[in-house]
Amino acid sequence: MKYRIQNAFTSSLLRTFSALPYELVARAGEALGSLLYLIPGKRKHILHTNLRLCFPEKTVRQREELARSTFRHVIRSYFERGIQWYGSAKALTRLVKLESAIELKDNYEQPTIFLGFHFTAIEAGCMYYSILHPVASVYTPMSNQSTEDISREQRGRFGTEMIARNGSAREILNVLKSGKPIMLAADMDFGLRDSVFVPFFGVQACTLTAVSRLARLAGARVVPFITGVSPGYVGYKLSIFKPFDNFPCGDPTADALRMNQFLEAQVRLAPEQYYWVHRRFKRRPAGEAAIY
């Protein structure tokens, strides 16, 4: 009962945000982020730990400024989810600027995997693409079933076919071979199964090999995309890049490293927009102490 009441309140709040001007919602999220940053907490500890590991060249003051900015972006993204989940297609289309290095179609002759990364605006880019073209999305189930039901329904409201990460790989392959592209993200620690340790910002990170395996089995190309927050409170920019060359290359470890190297280069362009509050280095290679 408690969770149903909480989720009903959250849903109502997000619906309210969807009816407000985008800039107002964004600024309110940033303001709350600034306040919450003053309170010690688990996410703040994870954030500082990640930044210390990944940016040792920065001074303590520089990392502190980056941490504060990151927290503002993270909380802002929760507020903006109201617009992304409940706003009209017209409103979302107005907010997103698209820049694509490939021609976008409803169906692709070659199976296509759109490889996303957890920047704070990732939801906006995925929702926007689903307005333009049919797509499937691989998602990670949540521990709270009621919350998962809401997120799955809203993420799929423009026709996105939602596929649970713990589901059948055959289902993903069938979708790919039908010509419908699939969106997925592989930059979190999803466990040791089908993963290898490769560097990310010089730190060994447990990284999925499933992307290269799916690409090999389906004969798919892997097309990376990034959604960034545009300056001036005008919305977002969805950047779709050229497919990775020679991917998969036959070496899953080399493919995993390739993904991390691409992501690292993109993060360095806007480090405050990456989701540093997740435990990217949760699992460690044998013999290494826990980080968090």
Results as ranks from 00 to 15, higher is better:
221 R>M: 15
176 L>C: 03
200 F>A: 04
213 R>K: 14
203 V>C: 06
237 K>V: 05
240 I>F: 10
178 S>A: 00
207 T>Q: 02
220 A>N: 09
176 L>P: 00
237 K>G: 11
185 A>K: 06
247 F>Q: 05
241 F>T: 05
223 V>P: 02
223 V>R: 06
231 P>N: 03
206 C>E: 03
245 D>N: 09
204 Q>N: 14
181 P>G: 14
196 V>A: 05
230 S>F: 08
224 P>N: 14
212 S>F: 10
182 I>F: 08
207 T>V: 01
239 S>R: 15
176 L>Q: 04
241 F>W: 11
189 D>F: 01
177 K>W: 09
217 L>D: 14
195 S>P: 08
188 M>G: 03
218 A>F: 13
194 D>A: 12
185 A>E: 07
234 V>C: 07
197 F>H: 06
242 K>H: 11
206 C>H: 01
176 L>S: 02
201 F>P: 03
241 F>R: 12
224 P>W: 09
217 L>C: 08
208 L>P: 01
238 L>C: 15
223 V>L: 05
231 P>A: 13
196 V>C: 10
232 G>N: 08
197 F>K: 06
211 V>P: 14
203 V>H: 02
244 F>Y: 07
240 I>P: 06
199 P>M: 07
241 F>Y: 15
177 K>Y: 14
187 D>E: 13
188 M>Q: 15
200 F>M: 00
242 K>P: 07
239 S>I: 07
184 L>G: 08
245 D>M: 12
192 L>G: 11
225 F>L: 10
216 R>W: 12
228 G>H: 13
193 R>M: 12
218 A>N: 09
235 G>P: 00
235 G>D: 02
219 G>S: 09
221 R>W: 10
210 A>M: 15
202 G>A: 01
193 R>T: 07
233 Y>P: 03
180 K>C: 10
217 L>K: 13
202 G>I: 09
245 D>V: 00
197 F>Y: 04
182 I>A: 08
199 P>L: 10
239 S>K: 15
243 P>W: 07
242 K>I: 00
186 A>F: 14
193 R>E: 11
244 F>V: 01
187 D>S: 11
202 G>S: 01
241 F>K: 09
178 S>E: 03
238 L>K: 06
219 G>Y: 10
242 K>W: 08
231 P>T: 03
212 S>H: 01
238 L>D: 05
188 M>V: 11
